[in-house]
Amino acid sequence: MRESGALKLLTDTWRGRFGVAVILVAVFVSIFGTLIAPYEPEASSLDVLQPPSLDHWLGTTESGADVFSQLLVGTRVSVLVGFAAAIISAVLGSMVGIASGYFGGWTDRILDALENWFLVIPTLPLMIVLARLLDPSLIVLIAVIGFTSWAGTGRIVRAQVLTLRERSFVERARALGAGDGYIIRTHILPNTLPLIFASTVLIIAVAILSEAALAFLGLGDPTRISWGTMLQNAFDSGAPSAGAWWYVIPPGLCITLLVLAVSLLGFLYEEYINPRLRRES
């Protein structure tokens, strides 16, 4: 009954349809991108900064590589970093949130202080510092983004756990002699999952943007092409001033589309679990 409601939101609203379509395409391309790409993405040629043509649909880069192929191959990094970092952040956030909400007392005070600290420091500079300190690689990127973006989830989860803890089914389980682990597994977690999921979806969007930002600043994985590194290369080679819009706009547009799609789905899901947000369509 509830489940069909969620599906209905996905298929019956333009936001749902758009989000699902974009994400399906992005996931498909990130898996099969290397196979569909018409050229070797980093193969240089003499056709430097050529505008779009029948041979090169989206033109070429400053080293004569095919922009379209780079775009296809670069999808993988964005999608991978987005999802993996969001999962790290979800796991961290829910662990901290549940521990601090459920156990209270000193555990709560310490974890809450940590959470606040991560909430108030500006995330991007922290990411930059961390990424600088460590050798840039895909794993480092994922870890850095994941570790800096969990605090919001933690906050939401903690608040939910605080109210759940007072509900009498938790008290009843305790009166039965159930241990903390059991109560968290069967009562706390299932009632928090929808919230964790909703905030994680939104973090995917943040993670995709963060990856692009870091890569643009030259802190991305140098061995892999991503939309962010494409933008960085484009700017480094003066593509914008040379009027090579085909080199700048496609990666920028892709980032925007994917972030928009993920955010829309996140908002839709939030509305679904919290019907008060739902507006009559």
Partner: peptide, 25 residues
Amino acid sequence: FQDPYQTLNPRQRVRAIVTEPLIVQ
């Protein structure tokens, strides 16, 4: 407990709710 709306976990079916004490014990 007092409140019939708070006393059951909304994500458990009746089967799981009534079985729970047996599992815990």
